[in-house]
Amino acid sequence: MAIAAKRQEASVSPLAAPQLAFADATLALGGKTIIENLNLGVRPGEFLCIVGASGCGKTTALRLAAGLYQPTSGAVTFDGQPMLQPRREIAIVFQDYGKALLPWRTAAGNVSLALEAGGISVTERPARIDALLRKVGLPGHAEKYPAEMSGGMQQRLQIARCLAQEPKALLMDEPFGALDAMTRQGLQDEVLSLVAASNATVIFVTHDLDEAIYLGDRVVGLLPHPGRIGIELAVNLPRPRDQLATREHPEFLRLRRQLFDFIKATEQ
């Protein structure tokens, strides 16, 4: 509860300087403008969700934040520094977990990759791997290969690898898009508690409006062609969130309606 209260505080403080910021960021790929003049700041510890119709550039925005793309003009900054390349303190969880895990390494080996990259000594690794796998609910699966795991378990594993980076910011690209509804709800709650414990800043891209409101402190809706901000909603729902209570909260329903109307309008 204490952690949740602290988070709440961080998220409502409008004075905090943004940790991750898009400043007039524009990205053109192959002569097509995908993102135009995006201005968006994410405060430290904030959980920001980005929604939008498919093709609105939300994944591209996330890749800009990760440093995987460079803006054509404008800038993306992290802690005030321009993002010229990816950095270890920003972890990205890809949607296609099947492609983002090393199929030749076991669960433990996949987590270890991030530790190796971070220069953690061999002797320290086993304990850390153990703790991380436990944290994401995969104890006892350390010696399994990704192909032997279900989709939900693979995504947990990818999250464990990202947590191994001890990231200041966690970028998640429709991480639960390919999972069934039950698995998805379970993972939503786990991500919330993991993030609360690590105090990381999160940008979470999804096309599921309920998911965005349920998870976020703030929801940004993008307009397509080219991608730009169309709506910005603060989510003032109490934490910790609860799958039943939160989703039945009048504020949840109001926000849901507002977002729904927005998306509907963009699709016309």
């Binding site: 990760a66 440093g67 995987l68 390349q85 990816p86 950095r87 270890r88 920003i90 972890a91 990205i92 890809f94 492609k99 983002a100 090393l102 990759l113 991030a114 990259a117 971070g118 980076q165």
Partner: peptide
């Protein structure tokens, strides 16, 4: 996987 490698620097 190359992107994973990049984000792990």
């Amino acid at each position: 996987l190359y992107e994973v490698a990049r984000s792990l620097q």
